[in-house]
């Protein structure tokens, strides 16, 4: 198999490292990688995909190895870990191996579509933003597969957060973002929260440190395979996290 395709490189030295933390994403991983390759190929930006698999029992890693053979070891990097250790440490782990000067974080479950990445990159260049965040709440942004209850909780939680924290960004719990590498490094040092609150804390700390934030409307297509979770526990831990940030930042 031809593993080294020459990309129509945009010669400005910028390179984008996409971090894909996975756990049981055997179905989704090939698809997300295919889409990433497609859109980066079309736009011509230099990139690498770093798969951080947390010991998935479903064989995600074997699929990733096959993908590496297909697309090349310079494009697909495998940085597996032995067991599930959480999102925050996955980013740190992945970032250690990233050679790009920009880092893109996104979910590997296809709820974040790679077609938006060129828009993220253009947005970043437009204002030299320190981070660009995808937003479901503005412009053409939106969601698919959410019922009224889910929408109400989402909008309500977002409103409450806006009132209490005034973070200067419209989507705080989304996890589709582009960071300058050094910015992500400095944020990772400071963020301690878990789950939804982790993404929120990243934005709040970014604002606190006077980093600039750009936003790009995205459509969020809720998990095609597997169940998405929003139960009482998530809501309670969200409120706890919100109040913690309220009191400490």
């Amino acid at each position: 198999m031809a593993s080294r395709k020459s990309q129509p490189n945009r010669d400005n030295g910028d390179k984008y490292s996409i971090l894909l933390p996975t756990y049981n994403e055997r179905e989704n991983l090939p698809l997300i990688v295919w889409l990433l390759v497609k859109y980066f190929g079309e736009s011509g930006y230099n990139y690498e995909i770093i798969v951080i698999d947390d010991g998935s029992p479903d064989g995600t890693l074997e699929v990733a190895e096959q993908l590496q053979k297909i697309y090349g070891e310079d494009k697909i990097l495998l940085r597996p870990r032995a067991k599930k250790l959480g999102l925050g440490t996955a980013y740190i782990h992945g970032m250690k191996h990233a050679t790009g000067n920009f880092i893109i974080i996104m979910d590997a479950d296809l709820s974040h579509h790679p077609k938006f990445i060129p828009e993220f990159i253009e947005k970043q260049k437009e204002g030299n933003y320190d981070l660009v965040s995808g937003t479901r709440y503005q412009g053409n942004g939106g969601v698919y597969g959410w019922d009224l209850r889910r929408k109400l909780i989402s909008r309500g939680a977002n409103f409450l957060t806006q009132v209490l924290l005034r973070p200067g960004a419209s989507d705080l719990t989304g996890s589709f973002r582009l960071y300058k590498k050094k910015v992500l490094e400095s944020l990772m040092e400071r963020c301690v929260s878990k789950g939804y609150v982790f993404q929120m804390e990243m934005i709040v700390r970014a604002r606190q440190l006077n980093y600039t934030i750009g936003e790009v409307p995205i459509s969020f297509v809720d998990r095609v395979y597997g169940e998405s979770k929003l139960g009482g526990n998530e809501i309670v831990s969200f409120v706890k996290g919100l109040l913690t940030l309220f009191a400490t930042t």
Binding site: G141, G142, V143, Y144, W146, K151, R155, F159, V221
Partner: peptide
């Protein structure tokens, strides 16, 4: 909140 729920885009096309 009510208004924003009402105008929340459903991305069927996407």
């Amino acid at each position: 909140v009510g208004y924003r729920v009402a105008i929340f885009n459903d991305c069927d096309e996407a």
